[in-house]
Simulated scan of single mutants.
Amino acid sequence: MASKDDYVFTRDILDNSRLNLMHKHWVKDLGYLIHPRISTKQENLRIADIGTGTAIWLLDTYDELPKSARFDGLDISLEAAPPLNVLPPNITLTKWNVKDPVPEDLLGVFDIIHIRFFIFVLLGEEVPVVVEKFVAMLRGYLQWVDSDNRSVRTERPKPGGQPENVDEVQTNNLDQLMSLLKSQDPRLNPTWVPELPDIFSRGGLVDVETDIHDSPPHLGFLMHECGLIMHELIARKTKNEKMAQEVKRLLPLAVEETRQGAYLTSTKFCVTGRKP
């Protein structure tokens, strides 16, 4: 039986552009594609990108690593990925759902597994099982990068640099937009990201470290603008017509608040661990 693909976004040209832009913002903000603690100088590395999407992380990593490296992009759907004839020959794309058993030929072969932007894909109870699968695929490091949705907050600018004016910028519609989405689908209100270090350790990884990062205002604002596209995509994809209409009503109002300088931001986690 084919794996069920119930991705909450649209996998179209707008979604692809959103993913590519978000990738650039996140890498600039974090300062790395692969955490500096993970060595990438050795020859013949084999690297997997889980949920590869547009393959943008793989393509940027390809530019930085030795040309002897092999790259595997794995995803439940390859609709967002570039056609194979435009990819370097050492990049391979494979359809695989992380909720399915691991293919035999992918067991114990990867020096680095990278996964990112899965907070709206997995439920909390599914994460430990998925991590165990990644550990089985490893011979090196697992790196998981995601946003802690519990930390989502609205930041307001201080017009003219005057702290007493902070309340002049309204955020009611931004706040309503976030509350609406959280209420509709449990995947849109994830709380498990801060638990990843413990999940890594229980899954058998050692030397687990966590890089916790808050964005400076200028990058936080840019990422927020990019993230607003997600609401439009969810409105298009959802079968809940009432929710779709409310998102469409709130979104232009939230955009106006954004143009006044208000933005939503959250704390980012990069969790790394090594297979003993």
Rank of each mutant, 00 (worst) to 15 (best):
A2S: 13
S3N: 10
S3K: 01
Y7V: 12
F9S: 06
D12S: 06
D12G: 03
D12N: 13
L21M: 11
H23G: 04
H25I: 15
W26P: 04
V27M: 12
L30M: 15
L30K: 14
L33G: 14
P36Q: 09
R37F: 00
Q42P: 00
E43Y: 13
D49V: 03
I50F: 05
I50V: 15
T52Q: 03
T52V: 05
A55E: 02
I56W: 06
W57K: 04
L59W: 02
T61C: 14
T61A: 15
Y62M: 01
L65G: 06
P66K: 07
K67H: 13
F71Q: 04
G73S: 08
L74F: 10
L78S: 04
A80K: 12
A81E: 03
P83K: 10
L84P: 03
P88A: 04
N90Q: 09
I91L: 09
W96F: 04
K99S: 09
K99F: 15
P103V: 11
E104F: 04
L107I: 15
I112M: 00
I113T: 09
R116H: 08
F117Y: 13
V121Q: 07
E132K: 15
A136Y: 00
Y141F: 11
Q143P: 05
D146R: 00
N149W: 15
R150P: 08
T154Q: 06
T154N: 14
G160T: 06
D167N: 14
E168L: 12
T171A: 12
T171S: 14
T171H: 07
N172R: 14
L181N: 07
L181D: 03
L188N: 08
V193S: 04
P194R: 02
P194E: 08
D198L: 12
R202L: 14
G203E: 04
D207H: 13
E209G: 03
D211W: 13
S215L: 15
P217M: 06
G220N: 13
F221V: 01
L222H: 08
H224V: 09
H224C: 11
E225Q: 14
I229H: 07
I234D: 01
A235E: 08
K237T: 09
K237Y: 09
N240W: 10
E241P: 00
K242H: 07
M243G: 06
M243D: 07
E246P: 03
V247Q: 05
V247E: 07
R249Y: 11
L250V: 03
P252N: 02
P252S: 00
A254C: 05
Q260A: 13
G261D: 12
G261T: 09
Y263H: 14
Y263M: 00
F269A: 09
V271L: 06
G273Y: 03
K275L: 14
